[in-house]
Design a protein around this nucleic acid. Sequence first.
DNA 1: ATGTCTTTGTGAACGCGTGCACAAAGATGG
DNA 2: CCATCTTTGTGCACGCGTTCACAAAGACAT
Lengths: 253, 253
Amino acid sequence: MATGRTHRPATRSRGIPEATVARLPLYLRALTALSERSVPTVSSEELAAAAGVNSAKLRKDFSYLGSYGTRGVGYDVEYLVYQISRELGLTQDWPVVIVGIGNLGAALANYGGFASRGFRVAALIDADPAMAGKPVAGIPVQHADELEKIIEDNGVSIGVIATPAGAAQPVCDRLVAAGVTSILNFAPTVLTVPDGVDVRKVDLSIELQILAFHEQRKAGEEAAAEGAAQAAGPRSETADKGPDGDVPAVMPA
Amino acid sequence: MATGRTHRPATRSRGIPEATVARLPLYLRALTALSERSVPTVSSEELAAAAGVNSAKLRKDFSYLGSYGTRGVGYDVEYLVYQISRELGLTQDWPVVIVGIGNLGAALANYGGFASRGFRVAALIDADPAMAGKPVAGIPVQHADELEKIIEDNGVSIGVIATPAGAAQPVCDRLVAAGVTSILNFAPTVLTVPDGVDVRKVDLSIELQILAFHEQRKAGEEAAAEGAAQAAGPRSETADKGPDGDVPAVMPA
DNA sequence: ATGTCTTTGTGAACGCGTGCACAAAGATGG
DNA sequence: CCATCTTTGTGCACGCGTTCACAAAGACAT
C-alpha cells in the first residue's frame, strides 16, 4: 500500500526545507509591512521579532535562498521582498477556483488576502443549480458541470475545496483529473490523491480540539498545583475557570 | 504545525508529544465514522488508512495514551472514542466566543463542526454598533464593549479572532486580560501573548503561498525534465526558473 | 492444553529542525 | 590603510518525531 500519499514529498524541494518554506510567507508579510513604511534595511534580529521567530532560525532560513544580506548592515528590504516573492512563485499570477460556495466558500471569495498577492479567483463553483449565475464577491457562481471546462480554459492548477465533507473527495477527484495539482481543503475529510498532487488541510475543529487539550491540561495542572516551584507567572490569578461543573476525573498514572 | 507563539513550552504535555496531540482529532473523526457504522473493532492498519497516516505511527500515538488495544484483534471502537474524547477534553463543553463577525466570522458561526462536539458558541462579538443585536446563526451579535463581561459571565477560556489584521492584537489583549487562555487566530498577524496562553493560527494566504511554492517547483522540474545536465549543480541558480515570461516587474514599491 | 496466527506495543536507529556560538565579512572611523 | 565594531552565515550538537522490525500477547482452532 502506497502510504506515501498526500503529505511530505520527502524530497526536500530544491534543497529548501519544508519548515523553511512554511515560514517564508511570514517573513514576506513582515517585510511588506516594512516596505510600506519605507524602511530600507532590517537586521535579522528586528525581522525575526516582527515575524515571531528566532533570529538564528531566520538567518538559516535565508541562507537556503542565498546570501542576500550584508554583514554589519542587515538585509535590504525591497530586495528581500523580491527574492522571497520569486522563490514562492508569487511573481506570477495563480488562477484559483473555489468549489462549494456556502458560508465558508463565500467568505473565502470575499477574503481580500486572495487577490492581494499572486492569486486571482478565476471562478466560483457550486453544485446547487439555484446558485448558478448569482454573483458572490462580484463573481458569478458557475455550476459544477462546468468544472472541467473552467479548469482547462483558465489553466487552473490550484483548487480550494469548501464543500461539505461528503462532497470533498469526489470534487477532489474531478479537480485532479482536470489538471489541478495543488489543493487547499477546508472540508473535514482526509483526501486521497495521486502522487504529485499536494494537499494542504485547514480544519477548524481540529485546531479547536488541540486547544481544548491544552486548555484541559492547564486546568488540571492548576487544580493540582500547590507546591510548584514554577517561576512567577504573570497570570492574573484567575479564581476558577471551570466552565460548567463537571470536573474531569483525575488523571491516571 | 505547532503555532504556539513565543516558545513551545518544551514541556511535553503530560508526556504526550505535541505531534501526537495534533493527530488525535484525526483519529477521533475516523473512529466516529466507524462508530456510526456500528463497526465494533478496528485494526491499527485499517484505522491508519482511514486517518491517512502510517500504522506504526498510529500505534505509537495510542501507546502514549495507554494500552487500549487487544493483540490479535485490534481496538474497540467505542472505547477508543471515549478515551480520545476524554484525553482531548471533549467530554466537557467548552464555551467559545467569536470576535469579528464579518464574512469569515459569520461563516464560522454557522459552521456545524463547532457545536457538534465539545464546543458551544457562547457569544458573537463585533465592534460595529450596527451589528449589535442582529442575529447570526441564531445568535444575536453583541457589541465589543461587552467583551469582558461576556468572557467572565460565561467562563470562556477559548476565543476565536476573525477580525481584520489591525484589530487582532488589541482584541487578543482584551481577551487575555479577561481570562481567555487559548486563542484561535484567523487574522493575518503574529499575535503576542503572555506565557501560559496558547495561540493557534489559521492563515489562508500562507497556505496558498506554500502551495504556490510547490506548484512552481513542479512546473520548473517539468520544464527542465529534458535537460539531464543537472548532475553536479548543487547551486542551480538563476537560468531556469520561470515557466512563463521570467522576471516580471517587481511588486509595486 | 498446545500450537498457530494475528496484531499490538515498543526498543532502536535515523533524519530533520532548532538553537548556540563563533569565525568571516564588510562597514565605519581615525 | 588599519583598527574596531556590527551583523551575517554556518558548523555543530541536541532533541523530537518517524519508521522499522520484532518480541510479547492474546484469539482461535484442533
